[in-house]
Design a protein around this nucleic acid. Structure first.
Length: 421
RNA sequence: GUGGAUAUAGCUCAACUUGGUAGAGCACCAGAUUGUGGUUCUGGCUGUUGCGGGUUCAAAUCCCGUUAUCCACCCCA
């Protein structure tokens, strides 16, 4: 309750049993991503601020108000708010022969200083990929199919994919100008925010939730009308590849993704099982200038907190985690037995048998501890057992108890717990 | 950054309206059972009522501030 034992606002501890679900998700992710030829890339959590300000765009919310920025030794540093820019910073330091065709994935914490709410933390976790193969609708479709595949592996088969295009980077000014012109006549009817957005970030008018604005937006020509034929073709081909792959999606001309580095294919994946923050994942194709190089790729990011949130909302989280291996609890009566049990634990663990013991206490309290821990078996030794070179083995579920010679204990436990040697 | 709700034992909550020095269930510890857990019975422990200030003879209760949590806006994962 006191501030001394609380984590920082918007950041939280992930403890058992929930952490076992996280471990499971990460394991499944690595398996799936490796099937698509991706290698893990671990970039630092701390980067130069400029890595993000330049690539995401100075006017984006992430850069303007959500970054954790600090100064150290006269350098402007920050906690990474997303994964792509750091991976591109890494790529910019490599030769072209190393980045061409590179496929990297990452899993780790990201930081945004927003007000916390359901499904939103200040430290949150993303699993994402970046693919630097030459631009092609084929690659975009493959990467989106991978994301859907991964979500399905996690038990989220029922998410909705919305797809859109931002067009070629060179043509984005034309799109903005076209939308501004189309909106000019109705400017007075837009909400206060949207009147500001017309000049600052006109695409944002498209996904305004204000009913009056939506009515006006519905009368606009689709933004693809302001793009060149090549951009429209790119979207159509990507959609055709997705159809061929059996990936379900909905083309949504009003889908907006705000970061400056996007071009062509963009998408978002949402789940109805979540509250207001229902986006589980997003992705798209990008082009950015960094370290004197231009890097082109396609990638996605999945919010792990939100994946966990969906699984919990659907009640699927319990089924996804395997129980820990059967535990053996060693009960020792008296110091001599406790000492010998300490050594015995080493032998059992060498035989891959999970075990624990209490540091002392009455037999009753040790048995209680065994029960509380969920131990499958108890091994009991007192002065009598030590003298005879035996141990009592008790099955905690059935209550049955047998006395075994010590040299048979490990093999008997291995057989009963299914331990692999 | 803006708005609403909330903060009491390890956990879930009661007492707040109408001020009179905090209570239940679960959990935990012990005994019944002197070498046997999980059920039962009996007993026991647990609190600067988030924090700071104010009003009052008296504050968990009323007032102000502050911090945190939850939810929503903005935006996104």
């Amino acid at each position: 309750m006191s501030s001394a034992n609380q984590p920082v606002q918007g950041m939280s501890d992930i403890a058992a049993p929930e952490v076992r679900l996280w471990q499971r998700l990460e394991r499944l992710a690595r398996e799936t991503l490796e099937l698509y030829g991706f290698e893990e890339l671990r970039t630092p959590v701390v980067e130069f601020e400029a890595v993000f300000t330049r690539s995401l765009g100075e006017t984006t919310d992430v850069v303007q108000k959500e970054m954790y920025v600090f100064e150290k030794g006269g350098r402007r540093l920050c906690l990474r708010p997303e994964g792509t820019a750091g991976v591109m910073r890494h790529a910019a330091g490599l030769g072209a022969q190393e980045t061409d065709g590179a496929r990297w994935y990452y899993v780790g914490p990201m930081f945004r200083s927003e007000r916390p709410q359901a499904g939103r933390k200040r430290q949150f976790h993303q699993c994402g990929v970046e693919c630097l193969e030459p631009p092609s609708p084929r690659v975009d479709a493959e990467i989106l199919a991978l994301q859907v595949d991964l979500l399905r592996a996690w038990g989220l088969g029922d998410c909705e994919v919305r797809l859109n295009t931002r067009g070629e980077i060179g043509g984005q000014a034309d799109v903005a100008a076209g939308l501004r012109a189309a909106l000019a006549a109705r400017e007075a009817d837009l909400c206060e925010d949207c009147r500001r957005r017309i000049s600052e970030n006109v695409l944002r008018v498209l996904d305004c939730k204000n009913a009056a604005c939506q009515a006006i937006v519905a009368t606009l020509p689709p933004s693809t009308d302001f793009m060149g034929a090549a951009s429209r073709d790119y979207l159509a081909q990507t959609a055709a590849h997705l159809d061929a792959l059996g990936v379900k999606y909905r083309i949504d001309p009003l889908l907006v993704r705000g970061l400056d580095y996007y071009e062509h294919t963009v998408w978002e994946i949402a789940s109805t099982a979540l509250g207001a923050q229902n986006a589980v994942a997003g992705g798209g194709r990008y082009r950015m200038q960094i370290g004197g190089r231009e890097l082109v790729g396609v990638g996605f990011a999945i919010g792990l907190e939100r994946v966990v949130g969906v699984l919990q909302a659907l009640g699927r989280d319990k089924d996804m985690v395997a129980p820990p291996p059967p535990l053996v609890w060693l009960v020792g009566l008296g110091d001599a037995a406790l000492d010998r049990n300490l050594a015995l634990m080493q032998e059992l663990r060498a035989a891959k048998i999970a075990c624990r013991m209490a540091t002392g206490g009455s037999m009753k309290s040790q048995m209680r501890a065994a029960n509380k821990s969920g131990a499958a078996f108890a091994v009991i030794r007192g002065d009598d057992e030590l003298a005879q070179g035996v141990a009592a083995l008790k099955d905690m579920a059935s209550g049955e108890q047998v006395t075994l010679p010590l040299d048979r204990l490990a093999s008997e436990l291995a057989a009963r717990t299914g331990a692999k040697r």
